[in-house]
Design a protein around this nucleic acid. Structure first.
Ligand SMILES: [Mn+2]
Ligand SMILES: [Mn+2]
Ligand SMILES: [Zn+2]
Ligand SMILES: [Zn+2]
Lengths: 155, 155
DNA sequence: TTACAAATTTAGAATTATTCTAATTTAGAT
DNA sequence: ATCTAAATTAGAATAATTCTAAATTTGTAA
């Protein structure tokens, strides 16, 4: 945490109590929170905190490459304080997200027709699945609203 | 197109002129349009068409597994009338999206720790890159707003 | 054909996530 | 202690999407 502070103080990143709370919440967090998740958490200790502050801080961190936004949820952005390259798996029942640390770059070669059109700079894999908890629940629950499940282009 | 109509008429899917226009626009379309793209296109021939109709139709198609939504753009949903399993590459400069038809499932094995927690049902790869057009442009344009580029968890 | 119920269309309001604004406060430097 | 740039705040603005309720249309069956 000490180092965190030092790390951010450079580059005119002012450290306010609100920001420290946000930084602290994010540090080592593997839950991929949304802005709202963060807001509700920070509000516990800083009841006057504003939504704008959360967004401002996230933008500041994002612009400095300290958090990543992940494209996995249709409704809202999720933030990831772990900026090491990695992938994600999301439970299609409860939307729980987990990290997948594994480099597939070697295997993810683009087909020739694409290589002519695009110069690839990176890749990110979204895995879909059912988490353990939901798998157990589904024993007792009839598979309702199956038709409403989104069509995913899953391989 | 004849078959398209027959295909949708089953299951109480009523075919209105507006829907036919949408179906027609989507049929074989590889541009991954947003709801707004579709709306603006349909409006050319049906100036009175409503946004709600576009969304309603997309929902109906989605619920019947006839179009997929793709998670690649932070701002809005893109729709894909091609529901064969495939992946995408997006230009980080102009957001152009292209299809990547290649099955990487064999290589995309989950690490053991995840296998215990999730039962995987599918995967989707987002590639990032620069398209040919933007690559050429960038010769003449200074690399502005480089700092504002989002941190992507690219491998 | 005609009649009809159920599905669809529509304008506009509502909702939700995110960004912007402008006045006030605060952090960090001197 | 002073000062300025940066950060905070409430609330308004924006943008994508969904909802509502009344009017219209479709497909079907008499
Ligand atoms: Mn992660
Ligand atoms: Mn596609
Ligand atoms: Zn789950
Ligand atoms: Zn491009």
């Amino acid at each position: 945490m000490r180092e965190l502070i030092a790390k951010y103080r450079e580059k005119g990143f002012k450290l306010t109590p609100q920001r420290l709370a946000i930084l602290n919440f994010l540090d080592g967090n593997t839950s991929h929170p949304t802005a709202d998740d963060i807001y509700r958490e920070i509000k516990k200790n800083y009841p006057a905190v504003s939504f704008a502050t959360v967004y401002n801080t996230l933008q500041a961190l994002r612009d400095r490459g300290k958090v990543a936004e992940i494209t996995i949820d249709f409704q809202k952005k999720h933030y990831d304080p772990d900026i090491r390259p990695h992938h994600h798996i999301i439970c299609t029942e409860c939307n729980k997200i987990a990290d997948v640390f594994q480099d597939y770059s070697e295997a993810l070669r683009l087909p020739y027709n694409i290589k002519g059109e695009f110069q690839s700079t990176g890749n990110h894999v979204n895995f879909y699945g059912i988490c353990k908890k939901c798998r157990n629940l589904s024993r007792y629950v009839s598979k309702r609203e199956n038709k409403k499940r989104r069509t995913k282009l899953c391989a």
